[in-house]
């Protein structure tokens, strides 16, 4: 299947990107050393260290950090309140949950079933919460019913642009637990508990839980 091949290719690409970034991390740490050296160099105005700078210029006045045009965004002076930026990229592995996300790219919704006690999970887990035994992957039906719902007009900052959106917990026949997803294609006031819904999948997977969503059945 083309979709399958593509997703594999992307995973492969991502994997090698991961390796590259480790290489970069190595480069960065040596860059860190370089930049410390640079500070020393700039501070000494062409010399190789503060000692030399002192010798060149004479006296402690020669010791000087470089001035830059970077400043701080200040909100208040008493007390001093300023902006402090922070961001980070995580290297996140779905680990034992990975087949679920691979399944979404193949238009499959995978839950899990306990081989020992038969408990069936709509949201997969690789070990049974009831008895501790390993579970097996279990393809859920595409059709379910709304167990409960809400329409969010606000959200966490990362999701504010997507508001309003409707969240549903979906129940499936023969399945013991529920599945959290988004519902589209129905006005907020028309959503009802018990409403039959059908799973739909993004054509181009993002390997996120939002690759699957639900629409009213029929």
């Amino acid at each position: 299947m083309a979709g399958r091949d593509k997703s594999r290719a992307e995973v492969g690409a991502e994997g090698s990107a991961g390796r590259m970034s480790r290489a970069e991390a190595g480069a960065k740490s040596s860059a860190g050393r370089t930049s410390r050296a640079e500070v020393g160099a700039r501070g000494s105005t062409g010399g190789v260290g503060p000692g030399r700078a002192g010798a060149d210029k004479g006296g402690a006045a020669g010791h000087k950090l470089p001035e830059t045009l970077e400043g701080s965004i200040l909100y208040n002076l008493d007390p001093i309140i300023l902006k402090w930026h922070w961001e980070v990229d995580y290297v996140h592995s779905y680990a034992q949950d990975s087949p679920f996300f691979a399944g979404l790219s193949q238009q499959k919704l995978l839950g899990s079933r306990c081989a020992a006690c038969g408990y069936v999970y709509a949201t997969p887990r690789s070990h049974c919460m009831e008895c501790g035994a390993p579970t097996a992957w279990y393809e859920l039906p595409r059709e379910g019913r709304i167990h409960t719902f809400t329409t969010c007009y606000y959200g966490g900052e990362a999701f504010l642009e997507e508001t309003p959106f409707t969240l549903v917990l979906v129940e499936f026949d023969g399945v013991d637990t529920l599945f959290l997803s988004r519902l589209v294609g129905v006005e907020a006031e028309e959503v009802r508990i018990g409403m039959p819904v059908t799973a739909r999948f993004l054509r181009n997977s993002k390997f996120r839980a939002t690759d699957v969503y639900f629409v009213p059945a029929g």
């Binding site: 969010c152 966490g156 969240l167 959290l180």
Partner: peptide, 9 residues
């Protein structure tokens, strides 16, 4: 994995 990316709220 399953809840934050969908609801986040």
């Amino acid at each position: 994995n399953f809840d934050f990316p969908v609801g986040g709220f």
